[in-house]
């Protein structure tokens, strides 16, 4: 299958890209790694008339340390994120989740920012970003603004960005010394998550000092399992305590139903996988 015709520009700066998007209006579309977009265009499920390729903007590729944050450029590929020592040290949950994204070929091309901006609730990087209180740095004609993860994801495939805005980078607070695990559950290795749990924990001796948990595909947007987090804080890191806390994992979620999993099963999985993610994280 072949996409419908479109115009193509490949700006080399963020300013040019933003201008190109503004010019294109509603019918413009950013192409980052293209790993989600190109199949959609091939199937002609969407037909933007102008693609703005941000793959030739060097600034967007960098992963850097900035004070208390790790900053991942929107065009850093999954492959680069997976192997980045800064990410591994200070944002281990991102490393763990990125390891599970799609397959090696897609990880070579697909980008961190592309996945975030695509806002597929089954995508594996949304829940970690939410759990970590990531901040999305967004550029528009009026300059840049920062959107907290909790406000960035609005609905299925919908973010707080306007069509004329571009995700430039994602700032992740450092969680140095936290232990993290991403527990993914899918039908076959290459399919999307039915449910996944992004968990990170800071322990103090044998006690859980802090916990942050994000759930993948338990609503139209990633959700925090706050009831579980609250139940864990101050508790000894025992199997019983984890299990008791994990029983709250589906609270406040609104999972969809499909052929692979109905809502009841998704909720059940969220509870089981939260327990497993925490157990694996604590080690």
């Amino acid at each position: 299958m072949i996409p419908a015709r479109f115009d193509y520009v490949a700006p080399t700066t963020v300013d040019e890209a933003v201008r190109a998007l503004a010019d294109a209006g509603e019918d413009g579309k950013v192409i980052a790694g293209g790993q989600s977009l190109l199949p959609v265009l091939r199937m002609r499920l969407a037909a933007p008339t102008k693609l703005v390729d941000i793959g030739r903007i060097p600034e967007l590729r960098a992963i850097r340390e900035d004070g208390d944050a790790i900053v991942i450029g929107a065009m850093a590929t999954h492959y680069e994120v997976q192997r980045d020592p800064l990410v591994r040290e200070h944002a281990a949950l991102i490393t763990a989740a990125t390891d599970t994204v799609a397959d090696p070929q897609v990880r070579h091309r697909g980008t961190f920012g592309g996945s975030i901006a695509h806002a597929d609730p089954a995508g594996d990087l949304l829940a970690p970003a939410l759990a970590m209180d990531a901040e999305m740095v967004v550029a528009g004609m009026d300059g840049r603004r920062t959107v907290p993860a909790a406000e960035y994801f609005v609905d299925f495939f919908t973010t707080a960005m306007t069509p004329a805005e571009l995700l430039v980078e994602v700032r992740l607070p450092k969680y140095t010394g936290w232990r993290a695990h991403y527990e993914k559950f899918n039908r076959v290795a290459q399919s999307w998550s039915m449910v996944a749990v992004a968990a990170m924990v800071r322990t103090d001796g044998g006690t859980i000092a802090e916990a942050r948990i994000g759930l993948t595909n338990m609503a139209s947007v990633p959700v925090r399992a706050r009831a579980v987090e609250d139940a864990l804080v101050g508790q000894a890191a025992t199997a019983e305590n984890i299990k008791a806390a994990a029983a709250n994992a589906a609270n406040g979620t609104s999972p969809t139903s499909d052929g692979n999993a109905d809502g009841e099963y998704r909720s059940h999985l969220a509870r089981v996988l939260t327990g497993r993610a925490l157990t694996a994280a604590i080690g």
């Binding site: 490949a10 190109l38 091309r109």
Partner: peptide, 19 residues
């Protein structure tokens, strides 16, 4: 459709020729 693009495997059905 996997090929190597600048030394990495990619699915050439998911890359535009212009890219």
């Amino acid at each position: 459709c996997t090929v190597h693009l600048d030394g990495h495997s990619v699915k050439s059905c998911s890359v535009l020729a212009v890219q």
